[in-house]
Simulated scan of single mutants.
Amino acid sequence: MKFAYVTYDGPDDDREVLLAAWERAGAEGAAVRWNDPAADWESFDAAVVRSPWDYILHRDAFVEWAYKVESGTRLLNPASVLERNTDKTYLRDLGVPTVPTHWIHPGEQVTLPVHAEYVVKPAVSAGARDTIRTADRAAAETHARNLTTAGRVAMVQPYLDMVETEGETSLVYIGGRFSHARRRAAMLADAVPADHRSIPGRDPEPDQFALAERVLAEVEADLLYARVDLVRLPDGTPALIELELTEPYLFLSTTPGAADRLTEALLALL
């Protein structure tokens, strides 16, 4: 079998790890840039979306690309999942505890709830792009207004102090089964590790497992991979900060056996 590792022009330390796992399984793998005009997607038995990390600059083109590729080969995760997951308004529809969010659509009046500290970001974003953290309400309003004026949906959230100590808990699921977890420093925390490969493992608590399972049960699709990012609210209850189904870093290079598990799940789906 022949698989495409969908990527971009940039670093990705999981890339060679997964390609090597495919080779061990007797499959041919190739790293292909998602927007490479010369790519022959129909020549692959599956295209596995892994690190197209520049898609955020071309989200509409990326969604169009996903449906086009899916018309000729198996795309994982599916195009409909990628389309929905690349707009964070999906958080409103999951029916699970999430970080409290005030949504402001283009044309709506910009009025903010009272928070000690704000996080303001667009609904279509990744890697904290165009995201600010501020205790200045006027600055938060200005950023939200700039986003909506540009035709974007703004998200306004309270900054949660516990991310400074507990961090985020990322639960990685492969083929619908829990594989491993990591403690991650929030992108806007005061101290963020320079090297994500040094992020320590973490054993999720039972309430975090329960929430992750609830979240994934809301997705009506066959998922090859998923990363469920959780934080704890001030009262200690877990809440979803993001469900990563498009191009999450999966810590394959630092988790023994994870690349092989993903390969086995891929073969099972096919």
Rank of each mutant, 00 (worst) to 15 (best):
F3D: 12
L18K: 07
A21V: 06
A25Y: 14
A30M: 13
W41V: 08
W41N: 02
F44L: 11
V49P: 01
S51V: 01
P52V: 01
D54N: 15
A61G: 13
A66Q: 11
E70Q: 14
R74T: 14
A79Y: 07
V81N: 06
E83Q: 15
T86Y: 05
Y90N: 13
H102S: 07
I104V: 02
P106G: 06
P106D: 11
V110M: 09
K121M: 05
K121C: 07
P122S: 10
P122M: 04
V124T: 14
V124D: 03
A126Y: 09
G127F: 05
R129Y: 12
R129S: 11
T131Q: 11
T131I: 07
I132P: 09
R133D: 02
R152Y: 08
R152K: 07
V156P: 02
L160Q: 00
D161R: 11
E164Q: 09
T165H: 14
G167S: 06
E168I: 12
I174Q: 04
R177Y: 08
R177H: 10
S179E: 06
A185C: 11
A186G: 13
L188C: 02
D190H: 15
A191L: 15
H196K: 12
R197T: 02
I199V: 07
P200A: 00
Q208V: 02
V215W: 04
V215S: 10
A217T: 11
D222T: 15
L223F: 09
Y225T: 01
R227Q: 05
R227G: 10
L230V: 06
V231M: 09
V231E: 03
G236K: 08
T246A: 11
P248G: 05
P256N: 02
D260R: 06
R261S: 04
A265M: 01
L266P: 03
